[in-house]
Amino acid sequence: MEDLIEDEATFYSKAELYWKEVNPTVDGMLGGYGSISSIDINGSKKFLYKFLGEGPGKTGTGCALDCGAGIGRITKRLLLPLFRTVDLVDVTQEFLDKAKTYLGEEAKRVGNYFCCGLQDFHPQAGRYDVIWIQWVIGHLTDDHLVEFLRRCRSSLRPDGLIVIKDNVSYEGVVPDHVDSSMCRDLPLLRQIVARAGLTILCEEQQQNFPEEIYQVHTLALR
């Protein structure tokens, strides 16, 4: 992927500028596909339920981290109903400001709002049961994604889980010059996961999304 990026600093700054111009709404977070939000959330719930509960190897429900959280769409619909506390991290301060009202009464259970790009974000060691990373890995270079996943691994509680949910290309790396991101294929994503010292516990394709968008896969890592 790095060979497709002329200048790393420009790659990140262009993405920041792009998101600063996006409306702080669900439709804005989903690139005009706000109608798929419920399908997305329901698919994510079904996936996550496999790992939560009591017993050996099951993931706790104390604290979750929403990466690339935007206005808190996933925090509101998926994470806050399942976890006692949720932290949000996003590169756009306006989105995090909006989240404080969008989340309503449940915002009181948000622990932290971190305004930071994931390439620079260092989650607290041993804090999280689940780290949810959705539609944001394309904004990281391969090396920065590996490093971020390693930091995430160190920030998990016992039996904690990292979940990546994102678009995957059919072959190779496909650049998007509009929002300054990259879409990787599954073999490359699996290589990155392995480089980070993580194992894929489960991998599924999200169903019932519009045919014109890239297929979306969800991976549970530990």
Rank of each mutant, 00 (worst) to 15 (best):
C183L: 14
G197H: 01
L188Y: 10
V163G: 02
N167P: 14
V173C: 12
I137N: 05
G70N: 12
M29Q: 15
L201G: 06
C152P: 12
G160Y: 06
D120F: 10
L78T: 01
V193K: 11
I137W: 04
S154P: 09
D176W: 00
T75N: 07
H144M: 14
A194R: 14
R153F: 05
L201F: 06
E94R: 06
I200P: 12
A125M: 08
A69E: 07
F148Q: 04
P81G: 05
S180G: 08
L82R: 15
V216H: 12
V146N: 07
I213P: 07
L88M: 11
T25V: 04
P187M: 04
S180N: 09
D143V: 07
G57N: 12
E16H: 08
I41A: 07
D120K: 15
G28V: 06
T59D: 11
Y128T: 00
S37D: 15
D142N: 14
S13P: 13
P123Y: 04
I164N: 02
A107W: 02
L52H: 03
L65R: 03
Q215K: 13
D97E: 15
H217V: 14
K50R: 15
G34D: 08
L30H: 05
D166H: 12
C115T: 10
H139K: 08
R77T: 03
R84I: 00
N208V: 11
I213G: 09
L79P: 09
V178D: 15
I213Q: 10
E212F: 10
L78W: 01
V173A: 05
S169D: 13
K58N: 05
K100D: 01
Q206H: 15
P123H: 01
E147I: 00
